[in-house]
Write a protein that binds this DNA or RNA. Structure first.
Length: 376
RNA sequence: GUGGAUAUAGCUUAGUUGGUUAAAGCGCCAGUUUGUGGCACUGGAGACCGUCGGUUCGAAUCCGACUUUCCACC
């Protein structure tokens, strides 16, 4: 259940209550694809990094170890020992981004596994069953993420199909939750808005899925290559048609600046691989901007990654040490950098919430948008 | 000591019958990464080709000497 507790223009401060815990929004979900944060962080590390929601992937867990295995181990939360809320991505985006040889039909998608190439079929019902077995707090609808740039006719047809798939997702999730043996019989379902970069398709689609009275609404298919200004325009176009009483999730976004902009336009929830993936390549987020710890200039730099950060990594280690660990290919380099970046993101969202609580988000927005994305 | 081989970028090597600005991998220096195939991708700098001399219009490439390293034999 989503409760809007404060609003400043379009920006919203809310509380999302679930059977697995309460989420203060706006919030950033930390991506643990296969039940682990890439870069060697576990559930305990996530708590230390001030994470509220863990995100895991239907597609990956279905392929390995298999959702039946996860179910046998008590669901993803018990398996990974994360006692907070978990959101599972539906597999729709992975079919689009990872799998090859995909064949999309009304029933669903046939694709080749990126692990061993075997052919797999996934449709709305399969995705819901897998996510039910994973026992996540929130299941995402099975959708099609259209490539950018997209043909208008195809985007329209695809959005219509994604809406029909959503009806099937809703029916199957209701059946599974009421079946008596669901890992989480209170599993929630979020719908996903599509329509590429065409505002009329986006709005039509949003209006249609808003009528389905789902537990939350996501905007998908953005940040896939279009200019950020186009992304902001789509959010502005769709946002007035999103139910005010439901949580809103912008999928896969983004940079700190993207998040500040999207909160300004009424989004409540985010996830992105950027803090973890970039950390694995030595890029760390700081109050001053993005630093590449691989740069030679850090070889003898005794300062912490971010002198204003109070995370354990910044309280303990120097840029020079991290630089050395990255150059030496030590796994610890990734672990420390990933931890810092997730902490930075989670703290950023805390600061956004504090500004909203104080009614000063407008000022926060003007002062900080774009500030954290610069390379230094 | 004798015979043979070797010497090209920081490292390991490629360079066809001598022919414009000598190539690659690693390393180095940067950049990219947005619902995650975990070490990826894209650029850049860097060698007067062991030294000296010779042949030739022209030599990393052919010849000689010296030096380096390695192998075999005595």
């Amino acid at each position: 259940m989503y409760e809007l507790i404060k609003q400043e223009n379009a920006a919203r401060r809310g509380v999302f209550t679930t059977v697995h815990g309460t989420v203060q929004t706006p919030a950033f979900m930390n991506v643990a694809t296969a039940g682990a944060i890439k870069g060697a962080l576990d559930a305990g590390d996530l708590r230390a990094a001030r994470c509220q929601v863990m995100l895991s992937n239907t597609y990956h867990l279905h392929l390995r170890p298999g959702d039946e295995t996860v179910r046998a181990m008590g669901g993803i939360r018990t398996f990974a020992k994360w006692d907070g809320p978990v959101l599972t991505d539906s597999g729709g985006f992975q079919v689009f981004s990872l799998a090859k040889l995909r064949n999309i039909r009304e029933e669903g998608v046939t694709f080749a596994s990126h692990i061993d190439g075997r052919r797999i079929f996934m449709g709305p019902e399969e995705s819901m069953r897998i996510q039910s077995n994973l026992g996540s707090t929130v299941a995402m609808a099975f959708d099609e993420c259209v490539e950018n740039p997209a043909e208008y006719a195809y985007a329209k047809e695809s959005a219509a199909r994604t809406a029909r798939w959503l009806e099937r997702c809703k029916a199957e999730m209701r059946r599974l939750n009421g079946s008596g043996d669901a890992v989480n019989p209170d599993q929630l379902l979020f719908g996903i808005n599509q329509g590429a970069t065409f505002q009329d398709i986006r709005i039509d689609h949003m209006q249609r899925i808003a009528e389905m009275d789902l537990d939350g609404y996501a905007i998908g298919g953005l940040a896939v290559g279009e200019p950020t200004e186009v992304m902001y325009e789509i959010i502005e176009a769709v946002e007035p048609h999103m139910p005010k009483t439901k949580i809103r999730y912008l999928m896969g976004v983004g940079t700190p600046g993207n998040i500040i902009e999207a909160v300004y336009r009424g989004v409540d929830l985010f996830d992105c691989v950027m803090p973890s993936r970039n950390a694995r390549h030595g890029h760390v987020f700081t109050e001053e901007g993005v630093r590449n710890l691989m740069n030679a200039k850090y070889a003898l730099d005794d300062a912490p990654i971010d002198p204003t950060c109070d995370c354990p990594v910044c309280r303990t280690h120097s840029r020079a040490y991290l630089h050395h660990l990255f150059k030496a290919g030590e796994m610890l380099a990734m672990r420390l950098a990933v931890f810092h970046n997730l902490y930075f993101y989670n703290r950023l969202l805390e600061r956004i919430r504090e500004a909203l609580d104080a009614g000063t988000y407008e000022a926060f927005y003007r002062e900080n948008r774009g500030k954290f994305d610069v390379r230094i």
